[in-house]
Design a protein around this nucleic acid. Structure first.
Length: 462
RNA sequence: GUGGCUAUAGCACAGUGGUUAGUGCAUCGGUCUGUGGCACCGAUGACGAGGGUUCGAAUCCCUCUAGCCACCCCA
């Protein structure tokens, strides 16, 4: 502030780190995505579930795993007023499984198919498409372990992205059940024991904490080693192997293009068996593998682990921010919100009163009405009408008040007609329906050059 | 948590040690209490915060904060 010392710089409230406002003009992207999500949910028979944002901390510790970064350092955990440790949900599956058990959904016809969208929280360092409060959608199928379920869920994920208009690839793998996992981890350890010096620091840590993660390290040297490292699919037990083969057969039958990706693993502890991700197709040829926009897999042990009966399940989740980024990158047309049908402009106090009630009448008649009742001049009102892109402006001033009439102005060609005020609603409806017919017959709404002949009252082209 | 880059008005930018920090778009008002898209005129509004160097700092240095990008993690 270069002013006098008298006024202190104002401390203005500011977004918390990693938080983001989704402003009105952004909403159409989000609406677009949510509409497609609702669409596939409906066609695939999934019902919406909303679980609380706040849960017992232990729910996430027991499901995601104490050792994971998500639990260890990224959770928003705190003691509530009764000294209970609670956490903002960092992901969606745990809450859904909790609800499944808590509400006895195992007594419903199985499988139970549910989906969700909503905010999640991780105390992470913000980055492209990564916020501390972020939005995910997820689909979960509980109570059925048949491989056909896996394949159809992947089909759903693929369909969703296709309907959004994104070119994607499906990456599939199986990480095996706890039994195969032990054998595999041992093999992996043996492989890396003699190569410890060749791997990066992160990988040394991974070897201890999360050996599977060694496989998708991005350091070139590690990558090279990972190429020849044992693969999870070679260590699957008989049951897991058979399951996975069936899954792939079903995928073949569905003719989804998929990539068998031996280096695909999951980050959360609860995953077993089938694992998959959806990747956007890289824009340029030799780019690094892009961030997954969906990821998921089987979690056949989780329900039991959280205190329910042994129950197979599978699910996936996707990041909304990442989708929005891809949609923008690809210039996918998500459409603009439709403009209002009419604008009501008024001039003078009496007209303003009348306009206020006319607005209500029009609204009740099902019209989308815009206005700037607080403005006095007609000019700013016309400017607003123009900016909003409305088809017709209804103008009522002193003269019209005396005559019991109202002006209809066609905003495209400037032609105005005086109409009996009593007939305004039917008149405007007639015109709008005519336009709608035109709009559906052609791709673009053509401006009608010649005004309709049946109502040739006072035409004033301006 | 680690590293790199950045921070000037609501937005996009200019200003590289020297008057009162500019421009475009946007916003509000006027030209024009009865008419939008065009034009002209005017107004609002900013050097992220703190400290240092200097006669003098938006400009140089330090710290903090935030943003972006990558790692990490994950979707």
């Amino acid at each position: 502030m270069s002013k006098k010392g008298s006024d202190k710089p104002k401390k203005v409230p500011q977004l918390l780190r990693g938080m983001k406002d989704i402003l009105p003009e952004e909403q159409r992207f989000w609406d677009f995505i949510r509409q497609r999500i609702d669409g596939v949910a409906q066609t695939y028979g999934f019902s919406r579930i909303d679980t609380p944002i706040l849960e017992e901390t232990s729910l996430f510790v027991r499901s995601i795993g104490q050792e994971t970064d998500v639990v260890e350092k990224e959770m928003y955990s705190f003691l509530d007023k009764s000294n209970e440790s609670v956490s903002l949900r960092p992901e969606g599956t745990a809450g859904v499984v909790r609800a499944y058990i808590e509400h006895g959904m195992l007594n419903r016809p199985q499988p139970v198919k549910m989906f969700y969208t909503g905010p999640f929280f991780r105390y992470d360092r913000p980055q492209a498409g990564r916020y501390r409060q972020f939005y995910q959608f997820g689909f979960e199928v509980l109570g059925d372990g048949h491989p056909v379920i896996d394949a159809q869920l992947m089909m759903l994920a693929y369909s969703l992205l296709s309907e959004i208009g994104l070119p994607v690839t499906l990456q599939v793998n199986s990480v095996g059940c706890p039994t195969c996992r032990e054998a595999y981890k041992k093999a992996l350890n043996d492989y890396y024991r003699t190569r410890k010096n060749a791997i990066c620091e992160d990988c040394k840590r991974r070897l201890q904490k999360n050996p599977l993660r060694l496989l998708d390290c991005k350091v070139p040297d590690c990558k090279l080693l990972a190429q020849d490292a044992p693969q999870t699919v070679d260590y699957l037990c008989e049951a897991c192997h058979a399951h996975f083969v069936k899954v792939l057969e079903h995928l073949d039958g569905l003719e989804i293009p998929y990539v068998l990706n031996a280096r695909l693993v999951r980050g959360l502890d609860y995953y077993t068996g089938t694992a998959f991700e959806i990747w956007p197709v890289a824009q340029d040829e030799n780019a690094e593998p892009p961030n997954a926009i969906c990821g998921g897999g089987r979690y056949d042990m989780l329900v039991k682990q959280l205190g329910g009966p042994p129950t197979p399940a599978i699910g996936f989740a996707g990041g909304m921010e990442r989708l929005v980024i891809e949609i923008k990158n690809r210039d996918i047309n998500v459409g603009m919100p439709p403009p209002p049908d009419v604008f009501v402009a008024q001039l003078g106090d009496a007209a303003r009163k009348k306009a206020l009630t006319l607005f209500e009448d029009l609204r009740r008649a099902g019209l989308k009405v815009a206005e700037s009742f607080s403005k006095d001049g007609i000019k700013p009102q016309m400017e607003m009408a123009n900016k909003l892109g409305v088809k017709y402006a209804l103008i009522i001033g002193q003269k019209e008040m005396l005559d019991g009439t109202i002006l209809i102005r066609d905003m495209e060609n400037g032609i105005q007609e005086t109409v009996d005020f009593q007939k305004i609603i039917s008149e405007i409806q007639k015109r709008l329906s005519k336009n709608n017919v035109k709009a559906t017959n052609h791709n673009h709404i053509e401006v009608e050059r010649t005004p309709p002949p049946e109502t040739d009252l006072t035409k004033l082209p301006i």
